[in-house]
Structures are given as structure tokens and as C-alpha cells.
Write a protein that binds this DNA or RNA. Structure first.
Length: 874
DNA sequence: AATAAAAAAAAA
């Protein structure tokens, strides 16, 4: 039961008996509670006045939490938000009742009353300036622990700014927190909050439960700090529901009973029906199948069925890259358009990744900024429908600031994890933890993958699985089942692919040119960028007299160029490219960027040897669309430019070359063994066997055992490293060295320009982009010109690429780049990070520093739109 | 000395 309260009525309240007699006051007695402020309130750009009191703000947060809980589905409310949860949220700012915080806030406002100022006159603020007290959140934590709220409740209040505060071992009645007299005030405040909420502290079962309540607390605090509650003179009670509405916590309304055909305009295939039938309640479901069978639609329909049956409360669709996220986002938007009632909220899915904000300007038009409450990255997972990178979801189980807000947001949703085969041991380890956490958060996890080894499948399910299994395969582990269930869906037979393994790259070059000459669309995939550039140069030179077009695609292009190249080559090689295919033969050379996600259909494939999984992915690009006409004489065939096993076993670095730096020599050697003698391949039937032959444990030669040990060592390092960044509880690290991906080599962002000229008097710099466009960049912006600033930043971001730092232009120092501060994140100055470089591209493509000097000491650097970024030893 | 691709870094 709630006790009705009038605002500003604190003096009338009964204090708990035991607290009635305050101890001997220190030299500065505490402020009365009705004078303790939680907020200041801006009245114009420079002036502030008193805002809500601590008591009012805490009550508001508590009631917002109560409202959020009331709107949660029962299957989350019962296990995670027992009675007392609103009180937990309400207590978060208890520590604002302390002299340091009050002094700070009273120093800021202009309508402070004389008696409060007098009471705070002698407060020493040095502790605040030194930042060594954990802030008011730390005081909340100490106070609650002393008041027997329990360690977990105290920890939740402590971390409401994102991570556990550094309290410096102080006690609740420490002098720094105002001594016993102020702790007594906090005790009174708690008693008042208990009375106001009518609740007692709940029992917190385990670290995950604490994470959920911490998420609830932060979100309630954010909403409760919104503009609707700013004015302390206004009543707030009746505004709670509206504020929660405005923040977007309104359930979407789905059209009931739609069939698969009504949503996607075609009948579900058997394999799609099987997944939809299996994934009908919370749990973990894995669909392994080749691309092109409609995994996305199957997962989305399952999600529709679950959400409309009230078994899930939203969808997060997670992908390995930003580019694939953008593409799927469009498809999910179309899906929502079909399944939502016309007047339902949330008709748009949120796009969630580090560069999602760039898309705001994509349409060119001065469209409404469309900034929803969820737009900030940390809040994105709270939106009912979102599409984005897997990293955004991984952070729900990691030691990152506000990671628990993400956990709170993703709980109870359908979480679709796409292309799960593409993660390494580091990200894979975090992913396993995430899946485990999602299962406990009552999610329905739908995992989509090309193929998984038995080991990966077991790890994802947390249950032993054998490598011998059908393919395609659905593995289902509903929440209440003890054993996973396997279903082998029926699929139509795919291609028969002829395989030729050759040691002779020359022979492959000739064959590629011959095939292209006869009108075929050839795909050539290398393992490293520089080898792709070399192969492209050779092929382009040799085909010069012929009617052939050559192209190159890899990740070392500036974003603008890469986007244009992808667009161009996907239209030629894609599903709608029938007319273009007939024009002439082509050779598209590239790296792993051609391996997945892009809709590319090749008549003939040449690939450098790589691990079986990727090899199969690459071969999957052959003859993807049965409706394409193939030139006369075309055969569905892949050539693998390979190495000799014996030589490679003895000296992998020499036999595999740079490929051995990208892939584990052991896996490459096992791949050679598994594929030895393979001359044809039936898809998808042969896939599981090849994969198993590559990865199954077996007796090894001495040399192989050594290579295997190397791999195992590295894997362990990555796994252990990953485990340090996952957290079952609230132990977030303040400065986050916590990453969702691992790399041996640091990389920097590189901005390429034609020219730069500074106008110091006007505080601006004019740059010429590579395409000739000129931009004038102010060195600073007024607060009301944010949009203009973002627009320029978005434009500059298209002119950058990522480069390994050893091969990047020299670092000119932070100061020299200060003119770019409004447009780029330059890294943490305290850690002297240098994340951005700038170079000028000269006439012949050579890179120079903006000052005119050589770009780098050891390398000759160059860029052009056809080859991309190149570096060569001087 | 040197290897793919990839992501992230503002809240109350």
C-alpha cells in the first residue's frame, strides 16, 4: 500500500523512534531533510535555482520503477521484481544527503536560503575535488550497508552511475560523509522512503538478480530526472505514467494471427516451418543451414509468434558488423510494417551500433532528427525492437559501465544472433556467457549460423553435443527441457562443385583470365589485403587488351569508396544482375569481405587456402541463384591455391606465407588433410563431414602436435582474457579496457584529404576531400548548432579508414589535431591515446603529412580509389 | 617486425 504524500510536507513526518534524539551535533549540523536538494534547475544558459529535494527525487524514482515493473510481463516481474524493488530504486540517491554534495549544489543555485548556506559554510569540498570519495553514490552504498539494507541493495545504489564507486574503505558515519549526524539524516530519509513506498527491502537471490535491479534503478533514475519532474513546485505523482510513456516504455501492438505468407509474401519452406515450430517458447535454438534458405525470415516469424503470444516482449537482432546491421535493419523495418497495428507505438526499429548516428544524414533531406529517448547507445537495448551489432548485446554481460542497463533491457526478448560462425575464441567466449545469461533472463535465443563445430554447439548450449550430426540442423533447448532436441529439416539438394587444388598461382591466373574472357563472372579471394592488391594488379595488367572488367574489394578503402565499390559489384554479381552479367566477363578480387553477407553469385571461384569453415563459405558464393544464366562452357568449379602438406608441416610460415599470420597453421594443415583427394563436393551434404574431419581430435605427428599446442595456447590466452571482461554481478570497471573484440595489432582511424588550410583568425579550417568537395570546419560550436556539427562529422567520417598503427602515418600529437575535436573522438587524453591520424593524398597518390613532411618513416604510403591504401618498405 | 575483419569510447 502506498501512503499518499503531499510535496514539501516533510516536517510533518514522524521520524523513527530510535532516531528521535540526534547525537551531539558536530560543528556543522546537518541540513534538515526538507532542505537537502537532489537537483538544481537551469532557468537559462547561466543561471540555476533549487530543484527537487532528495526525498522527492527518490520518491519519483521509486514510483517510476513501480510503473516500469507494472508494465513488465509476469514472467519477468515474478522472478526479478518482487515487492521491495521500487524501494531499492528509490534509495539510490540516499547519499545525496551529505555535506559535500549539498555544498556543491547550493554553490550553484542563486535562490539558496541563508540558513542552509550558513549550515554548509564550513564544509570542506576538497574531498569532492580530489574525486576520492566515490561520489554521492558511494555515500548511498555505505549508508545503506550501515542501515542493514543488505550488501546487494547497497551495491545497487552504489553503482547507479554505471559502476561500483571507490569508497576508500570509509564507514557510513565517516567524517567525510558528514559524521554520525548526517548518517542519522540518511536513516530518517530511508524510514520516510519505506513509509512512502510501503515496501521493505527484497531478498536478492544472485548476482544476475542484482544486475536486473541495478538496471531498473538506473532507468528509473534517468526517467525520474526528466524535464517533466524539473519544477519542484509542480505535483509529480500524476506525471509518472506519462513520463514512462514518453520514454517509450509502451507495449507494441501486433496484428494477431498473421500467417508467414501474409508477412513475407511467400510460403514458408519446410526448414523455416521446422524452426518456427521448434522455437515456440523461451530457450535456446540453433539453426545451422547454408545461406540463402531464408534463416532471417524464419527467425523473424518465430519472434512474431512469441511476441504476439506474450511469451517475449521485444526483439533484438544482433549481427557481426555495422554494414550487415544496416542491411538487416531495413528488412526488419519492412517486417514491423507488416506485423504492427497501424496505430501501434514503435513502428520503427532502432539501429544500434557505433556509427548508427551517421545514417541520420543518409537521406540528405532535413528529416526530423528522430531522436527518441532510446537513441543514446546505452539505452538502445531498452527499445522493444532494435537491430545492431552483436557487441551491443555482448556488453549486457560484460564489465562495462552501465552493462546492467543493457541486461535489464534485453531480458525477456527474442534475441536473434546471426552469423555466429564468424567469431573468434575471444568474442566466442563472451558470446557463450551472453547466451547463458540470456537464458536466465527468460529470453528466446535464436542462433543462426552456417556451420558450427560440435565443440562450439556444445558451448553455446551449455550441454554436450556430438560433432556427428545432420546438416542442415536445428538444435532446440527450451527453458524447461533437460536435453537438447535435434531436428534434421529436409532441404533441396544444392550444387555439386568441382574442386581443384593447385600449388601454381600462375596457372590459376591464366584460368581466371580464360574464364572471364568467355564471359564468366570470376571471384578471386585472397587472405591478405596486400596479396589481393598484387593479384588485382597482375590480372588488370594482363587483361588490358581483353573485354574484361577487373575490380578489387577489401577493407582498406575510405568508407565512401568502399560503399561505392560494394554497390557497384553487388549489382553486377548479385541477384538482380542478369543484364550486367551478359555484358562482359569480370574478375572481382578481394579479401574476406567477399566471404559473407554480400549477395554475390560467381560463375567460377579461385581462393587461397583458408580453414574449412571459410573455404565452405567462399565456395557457397558459387552458382547461388539458379535463375542466372551461365555462359556456355561454365562449370561450377572452385580452385584452391594451396600448399604442399609435408613442406607446410615443417615450415608453415614459408609454405603458407602471410596466410599463416592470419590463420592458425595447425588449422590450415588440418584443412589440407581434410580436403586431400576431394575432387567434388555435394552441397549441403558434404559440409558436416569436412568440418568434422578438420576439427576432430586425432593422433598427431610430432610436428603437428607442436602446431596444435601453439593454437591451444593462444586459444587459452584469448579465453582467459575474455573471461576477465565478463561479469556475473555489478563489478564494472570504471575505466574500460574491456573490449568486445580482440586484436593483436592496434589500429588507428585515418582521415585522408586533398588539402587543409587553417584560418586561425576566423577559428575555422577549410579542407578539400578526395572527391574535390570543400568543407569549412569551425573549431567550435555553440550548443544550438549541434546538428550542423554532427552533419560535418558524418561527412568527414566517410573519408576515413582503419589502418594498423605500424603502417599508419606518423602521430602529430594531440595538439596538432585539436581543430578536429568537434568531429572525432581523439581518445582519452589522460591515457595519451592517439586514435586519429590525418594525411594528405598528393597527385600521384603518395601520402604526406598536413605539414608537408613524409607520412611515415619506414614505409612509403599511398592511396587511390581503385587499389585502396598501400604501404611499401622504403 | 608486422596480419582479415571487425567494434567501441555522455548521461541523469
Amino acid at each position: 500500500m502506498k501512503t499518499p504524500f503531499k510535496p514539501h510536507d516533510l516536517t510533518a513526518m514522524r521520524y523513527p523512534k530510535s532516531n528521535r534524539k540526534p547525537e551531539a551535533p558536530a560543528e556543522h549540523p546537518p541540513l534538515p531533510l526538507e532542505s537537502c536538494l537532489a537537483k538544481s534547475r537551469k532557468i537559462d544558459a547561466l543561471r540555476s535555482v533549487a530543484g527537487r529535494t532528495v526525498f522527492d527525487h527518490c520518491r519519483i524514482a521509486g514510483e517510476v520503477a513501480r510503473e516500469l515493473i507494472a508494465r513488465s510481463p509476469t514472467f519477468l516481474r515474478e522472478p526479478f521484481f518482487p515487492s521491495g524493488s521500487a524501494l531499492v530504486a528509490a534509495c539510490h540517491d540516499l547519499g545525496k544527503a551529505c555535506p559535500t554534495f549539498q555544498k556543491k549544489i547550493y554553490a550553484k543555485i542563486e535562490n539558496a536560503d541563508a540558513s542552509s548556506l550558513e549550515a554548509l559554510r564550513n564544509v570542506d569540498r576538497s574531498i569532492d575535488e580530489n574525486k576520492c570519495w566515490g561520489g554521492h553514490a558511494g555515500v548511498s552504498q555505505c549508508a545503506l550497508e550501515a542501515l542493514k539494507a543488505g550488501k546487494a541493495v547497497a551495491a545497487i545504489a552504489g553503482c547507479h552511475h554505471g559502476y561500483a564507486p571507490n569508497i576508500g574503505g570509509r564507514a557510513a558515519d565517516a567524517e567525510a560523509f558528514g559524521g554520525p549526524a548526517w548518517q542519522l539524516q540518511r536513516a530518517r530519509l530511508l524510514a520516510l522512503l519505506m513509509e512512502a513506498t510501503g515496501e521493505r527491502f527484497p531478498e536478492i537471490r544472485d548476482p544476475l538478480h542484482a544486475r536486473m535491479l541495478a538496471g531498473l534503478t538506473s532507468v528509473a533514475d534517468w526517467i525520474g530526472s526528466g524535464a517533466a519532474f524539473d519544477d519542484p513546485g509542480e505535483p509529480w505523482q500524476e506525471r509518472v505514467a506519462a513520463a514512462v510513456d514518453t520514454a517509450g516504455f509502451t507495449p507494441p501492438r501486433l496484428k494477431p494471427g498473421l500467417s508467414f505468407r501474409e508477412i513475407f509474401d511467400f510460403e514458408a519452406r519446410p526448414i523455416q516451418r521446422d524452426l518456427i515450430e521448434a522455437a515456440c517458447c523461451p530457450g535456446v535454438y540453433i539453426l545451422e543451414a547454408p545461406m540463402g534458405i531464408g534463416k532471417t525470415e524464419a527467425a523473424l516469424y518465430a519472434a512474431y509468434a512469441l511476441v504476439s503470444a506474450g511469451k517475449a516482449r521485444g526483439i533484438y537482432f544482433a549481427l557481426p558488423t555495422q554494414l550487415t546491421s544496416n542491411r538487416i535493419h531495413e528488412r526488419v523495418e519492412r517486417f514491423l510494417d507488416r506485423v504492427l497495428e497501424p496505430d501501434s507505438p514503435h513502428r520503427a526499429a532502432l539501429l544500434l551500433h557505433g556509427n548508427a548516428w551517421l545514417r541520420e544524414f543518409d537521406l540528405g533531406a532535413e528529416a526530423a532528427p528522430g531522436c527518441s529517448w532510446f537513441s543514446s547507445a546505452k539505452r538502445g537495448l531498452l527499445a522493444p525492437f532494435a537491430v545492431g551489432t552483436i557487441d551491443q548485446a555482448l556488453m549486457a554481460s560484460m564489465n562495462v559501465k552501465h552493462g546492467f542497463v543493457r541486461a535489464f533491457g534485453i531480458a525477456g526478448k527474442v534475441v536473434i544472433l546471426d552469423e555466429v560462425h564468424s567469431y573468434d575464441a575471444y568474442t566466442g567466449t563472451i558470446l557463450d556467457r551472453l547466451v547463458e545469461e540470456l537464458r536466465r533472463l527468460r529470453c528466446t535465443v535464436i542462433i543462426l549460423s552456417a556451420t558450427l563445430t560440435g565443440e562450439r554447439r556444445s558451448a553455446l548450449l551449455g550441454a554436450a553435443r556430438s560433432a556427428e550430426a545432420a546438416y542442415p540442423l536445428i538444435t532446440a533447448l527450451p527453458a524447461d527441457a533437460r536435453e537438447p532436441l535435434e531436428v534434421a529439416p529436409e532441404t533441396p539438394a544444392g550444387n555439386r562443385v568441382a574442386i581443384r587444388q593447385t600449388l601454381d598461382c600462375e596457372e590459376a591466373l591464366d584460368e581466371a583470365l580464360d574464364r572471364a574472357d568467355s564471359g564468366q563472372q570470376v571471384l578471386w579471394i585472397e587472405n591478405t589485403v596486400s596479396e589481393a592488391q598484387e593479384a588485382f594488379k597482375l590480372l588488370a595488367a594482363r587483361s588490358s587488351g581483353m573485354e574484361i572488367e577487373c575490380g578489387l574489394l577489401h577493407s582498406r578503402f575510405i568508407h565512401r569508396d568502399r560503399e561505392a565499390l560494394e554497390e557497384e559489384w553487388v549489382t553486377r554479381y548479385g541477384a538482380d544482375g542478369a543484364a550486367e552479367r551478359r555484358e562482359r566477363g569480370r574478375i572481382l578480387v578481394g579479401t574476406q569481405v567477399l566471404e559473407q553477407s554480400l549477395d554475390i553469385d560467381a560463375d567460377f571461384l579461385v581462393t587461397r587456402l583458408c580453414p574449412t569453415d571459410m573455404l565452405l563459405q567462399r565456395i557457397g558464393r558459387l552458382w547461388r541463384h539458379s535463375f542466372h544464366q551461365r555462359p556456355a562452357g561454365a562449370r561450377c568449379e572452385a580452385w584452391i591455391v594451396s600448399a604442399e602438406f609435408e613442406a607446410a608441416e615443417q615450415n608453415p610460415a614459408e609454405a603458407f606465407g602471410n596466410s599463416a599470420k592470419v590463420y592458425s597453421p595447425y588449422v590450415l594443415l588440418r584443412t589440407l588433410q581434410a580436403w586431400s583427394g576431394v575432387e567434388t563436393l555435394s552441397l549441403p551434404g558434404d559440409i558436416r563431414g569436412l568440418l568434422e574431419r578438420t576439427y576432430e581430435a586425432k593422433p598427431e605427428s610430432e610436428a603437428m602436435a607442436k602446431h596444435k599446442a601453439d593454437l591451444q595456447r593462444r586459444k587459452e590466452i584469448l579465453e582467459n582474457f575474455a573471461l576477465q571482461s565478463v561479469s556475473p554481478g555489478l563489478k564494472a570497471m570504471p575505466d574500460t579496457n574491456v573490449s568486445t573484440r580482440f586484436s593483436d595489432i592496434d589500429s588507428v582511424e585515418l582521415l585522408l584529404l586533398q588539402s587543409v588550410s587553417h584560418n586561425h583568425a576566423a577559428h575555422e579550417t577549410t579542407v578539400t576531400l578526395l572527391d574535390g568537395q570543400k568543407l569549412t570546419l569551425p573549431h567550435e560550436f555553440a550548443a544550438n548548432r549541434k546538428r550542423e556539427q554532427r552533419k560535418l562529422a558524418a561527412c568527414l567520417a566517410t573519408q576515413t579508414l582503419q589502418v594498423a598503427d605500424y603502417a599508419a602515418p606518423a602521430d602529430p600529437g594531440r595538439k596538432a589535431l585539436s581543430w578536429l575535436k568537434p568531429y572525432f573522438y581523439l581518445g582519452d587524453p589522460s591515457k595519451s591515446e592517439s586514435l586519429l591520424r590525418v594525411a594528405i593524398v598528393g597527385e600521384g597518390g603518395q601520402l604526406k603529412l598536413p605539414g608537408g613532411g613524409a607520412a611515415a618513416e619506414k614505409y612509403e604510403l599511398s592511396y587511390n580509389a581503385r587499389l585502396g591504401y598501400q604501404y611499401e618498405k622504403r
